[in-house]
């Protein structure tokens, strides 16, 4: 699906926020959130395709405003 998530080459974005050796997480809840989707996969609640499809169905306004986790 050519959705909002397919960002490669989209124009109009500003500078990348970059520092050397930048952090992966900015808060403990991000670690917990990142841990729980593989848990949902491993216990059979969702599979990776359902997970991706859910992301790709986010409304465009929601997608561009949302943070990663």
């Amino acid at each position: 699906m050519d959705g909002m998530h397919d960002l490669g080459g989209k124009q109009g974005f500003g500078p990348v926020r970059f520092v050397r050796n930048a952090p992966v997480f900015h808060a403990d809840w991000e670690v917990r959130a990142n841990a729980m989707y593989p848990l949902a996969v491993s216990v059979g609640l969702i599979n990776m395709d359902e997970y991706r499809y859910a992301i790709e169905r986010m409304a465009p306004r929601h997608y561009v405003a949302a943070t990663y986790y």
Binding site: L7, G8, G9, K10, F13, V16, P23, V24
Partner: peptide, 12 residues
Amino acid sequence: PDWYKDLEYRAR
């Protein structure tokens, strides 16, 4: 890292 997942890097 954070910047790798940001829209700016991915788009540009």
